[in-house]
Write a protein that binds this DNA or RNA. Structure first.
Lengths: 170, 170
DNA sequence: CCGCTATAGTTGCTGAAGCAGCCGTTGGCC
DNA sequence: GGCCAACGGCTGCTTCAGCAACTATAGCGG
């Protein structure tokens, strides 16, 4: 076996990305867990909270997260059971329903976010001088732009606020 | 709700990392799938192939991947069923067993790796000029080093070749 | 107005992964 | 030599996500 293949700088580059991502994800997950949230639930909460009216149709929510529509159904089931979300019927289209963040859900988010930001700063952005951080982010943006739109996996797009507005708004 | 929280540069930074990672992972997974491998199986295959004798104890394999020991048991079950791996008893410690890559497993890896490297180049390393790539990797390395060692999630360490040698070598 | 097709969401089934508990083995200790 | 704590790996149980099938509604064409 060509042992040296694994020393290929391309492999190393991917390794760095994977490890940095995995390490950060683990920190995030630990903090989410302290607040009784899974990473997916946190993502759902933030997607909804940043959307107009704190709500999104199930389908749109699926498009904005790493979940399939059936996955969204289950997650919303759990979160509705926990009181973080509610389903609301769409008045203009009886097939559709909205997932809406409840006051309790917003409160939970307010409890989680400060610590989340602190963790990002402690383990990610604060690890680098401003110009090094900028270089890192520029590089990531380039890769993201190449690989991003409509990728198979969820897009986690940070600024899709107009997405819901473009759809059949109720 | 403080809508502007989501415009925080720290959130954006994480978004970039997550999206770049997710996008690349999706490309990788698609190619693995063409060769009948899951991402985890590819990881197991590479870990073993880069280890001395193309083998690793189940426990060591678990430590080097994102899996628990029970997860390793199942994955190795599947891959052994598919002929990519074999279990071999450890002569000096009858509790231990090795997972060994078969010729078929190595062949599979040889089929997958060139395309894998091509994808990395096309969507990641080739997207940036050499100095920009270096800056990106330096940044990732800093974050990785901060967050990495013994993290909760799997470590995906790219140079643990001495790991197996340090253990109770048979 | 009727029927046909597309769409929204839910549900049964399957596969994968973790945890906890189990058994067999090992290696130190008396 | 026998005993016992530690360890390696496997199995039962649970959780969770995706796929595919299903129901209900919407919207278009004849």
């Amino acid at each position: 076996m060509n042992q040296n293949v694994f020393d290929d700088p391309r492999i190393t580059a991917v390794g760095l990305l994977v490890e940095a991502y995995a390490g950060l994800s683990a920190r995030f997950a630990a903090q989410f867990d302290e607040h009784g949230l899974s990473p997916v639930e946190f993502e759902v909460l933030t997607r909804l909270a940043r959307s107009p009216g704190n709500q999104l149709r199930m389908t749109d929510l699926a498009a904005q997260t790493s979940l399939s529509t059936s996955g969204v159904t289950r997650v919303v089931d759990r979160m509705e059971r926990d009181g973080l979300l509610t389903r609301r019927a769409c008045p203009s289209d009886r097939r559709s329903s909205y997932a809406v963040v409840t006051a309790s859900g917003l409160k939970r988010l307010d409890e989680v976010l400060p610590g989340h930001l602190r963790i990002i700063e402690e383990w990610f952005t604060g690890q680098l001088e401003p110009e090094a951080l900028k270089a890192l982010l520029d590089g990531l943006r380039r890769v993201r732009d190449a690989v991003h739109p409509g990728a198979t996996a969820g897009s986690t797009d940070p600024l899709p606020t107009e997405h819901a507005a473009s759809g059949s708004r109720c």
